[in-house]
């Protein structure tokens, strides 16, 4: 995991207003997050945002203290480190037919890549895992005439229960 970025989890009201308050605050104060995911948890009406923020723990701490002032926010914590696991997802569309079928089968066997559908002259694949895995899958597929890639994440959860859990 890169030392120059931190993961922050924010539990907030699941409304467009809360979303705007969070992102507006971060943009206004110069916290230019690289990634953001929005997920739903066991608790209805609440959303959990996960942000990837460039900078060190001190920068993250400043962002966390600002985020805690947003009235719609219930909980904020730094979720960077070994006590957490994260998952990213990529969707990849590439040309059919595949020239090097042997290589494709090798990738499907050995990575998280799997085919999830076929269209007219194209097929859709999915990869998931940690960021390095997903990036590697996308990179490996570049040999197959990739037409579109969409990556998203991260979703992060602690290995043990913490105070920011969805209960």
């Amino acid at each position: 995991m890169s030392g120059s970025e931190r993961r922050i989890s924010v539990v907030a009201e699941d409304t467009p207003e809360a979303f705007l308050r969070l992102t507006g605050l971060l943009a206004r104060r110069g916290f230019r997050f690289r990634e953001m995911s929005l997920g739903r948890t066991m608790r209805p009406g609440l959303a959990r945002y996960t942000l990837v923020l460039p900078g060190d723990a001190g920068t993250a701490e400043q962002a966390i203290r600002q985020l805690r002032k947003v009235v719609d926010v219930l909980h904020v914590e730094d979720v960077t480190g070994d006590a957490f696991r994260e998952r990213w997802v990529a969707l990849i569309r590439c040309d059919l037919p595949v020239k090097d079928t042997a290589l494709l089968h090798c990738l499907l066997d050995r990575t998280s890549l799997r085919v999830i559908g076929e269209g007219a002259g194209t097929m859709l694949l999915e990869a998931s895992g940690d960021r390095e895995t997903v990036d590697a899958c996308v990179e490996a597929m570049s040999a197959f005439g990739v037409r579109d890639v969409l990556t998203g994440g991260p979703f992060i959860m602690g290995l043990s229960s913490g105070e920011g859990e969805s209960n």
Binding site: G58, E61, Q62, Q66, R68, K69
Partner: peptide
């Protein structure tokens, strides 16, 4: 009283 002012 505002924690976000600490170290800002």
């Amino acid at each position: 009283i505002d924690a976000a002012e600490m170290g800002k």
